[in-house]
Design a protein around this nucleic acid. Structure first.
Length: 151
DNA sequence: GCCAACGTTGGC
DNA sequence: GCCAACGTTGGC
C-alpha cells in the first residue's frame, strides 16, 4: 500500500464538501497533468492512503485523511464540450485522462504548510519543495507516519 | 494581486 | 528536437 498527497482547492472541493458527498466519496476528475495522471492510472490501488490537502487558499495544508476507493477509469469531463475540462483530443476509444475515486477516512486538524515546513523530518517532502506544482505526489512512508503522529 | 516556477505549445 | 512564448499553479 502506498501513500499520497492530493491537493484540492477548497473553493472547488473542500474536506467538508467531501464529507457531505454520498458515500463521502468523490471522483478526482479534472487532473490535466501527465505526471499526476500517471500516478492515478498506473500506481494507485484501492486502499492507498491519502492526505487531503487544501491548496490555493487562505490556509493551505493537510486537513484530512482519505483513501483510494476505486481504481482509475476515464475522466468523464474530457468528453463533454460544455465542461471546462473538455479535451478535444480525447475520444471514447482513446481517452487521455483518468481519475480514481477518493473516500474520506476522517477529518483532521489543519496541519498548515507553514507548520509542516518547520519539521526537519519533512524537509524533503515533495509538496514542500519550492516550485512544486504537482497536484498529486507520492508520500514517503516515514513522512506519512511522522505526519500522522503530529495530527 | 504579485510573481516565481513549471508544463505545454508550436514555429523553425 | 530545440527553445521562446505563453498559460497555469499556488504560496505569499
Amino acid at each position: 500500500m502506498r501513500s499520497w498527497l492530493m491537493k484540492s482547492e477548497p473553493g472547488d472541493c473542500s474536506i467538508d464538501d467531501l464529507a457531505a458527498m454520498p458515500g463521502q466519496t468523490v471522483a478526482w476528475y479534472g487532473v490535466r497533468n501527465y505526471q499526476a495522471r500517471n500516478f492515478m492510472r498506473d500506481q494507485m490501488k484501492v486502499g492507498d492512503q491519502v492526505f487531503f490537502y487544501h491548496s490555493n487558499c487562505a490556509e493551505p495544508g493537510i486537513v484530512g485523511l482519505a483513501e483510494v476507493s476505486r481504481l482509475a477509469y476515464p475522466d468523464h469531463t474530457q468528453f463533454d464540450p460544455n465542461n471546462k475540462y473538455f479535451d478535444p483530443k480525447a475520444t471514447l476509444q482513446t481517452p487521455r485522462w483518468f481519475n480514481v475515486d477518493v473516500k474520506l477516512v476522517r477529518k483532521t486538524r489543519l496541519a498548515s504548510i507553514k507548520e509542516l515546513r518547520t519539521y526537519p523530518a519533512l524537509e524533503r517532502m515533495r509538496v514542500l519543495q519550492t516550485g512544486n506544482r504537482l497536484s498529486i505526489t507520492p508520500v514517503d512512508p516515514r513522512e506519512w507516519e511522522f505526519i500522522l503522529g503530529i495530527l
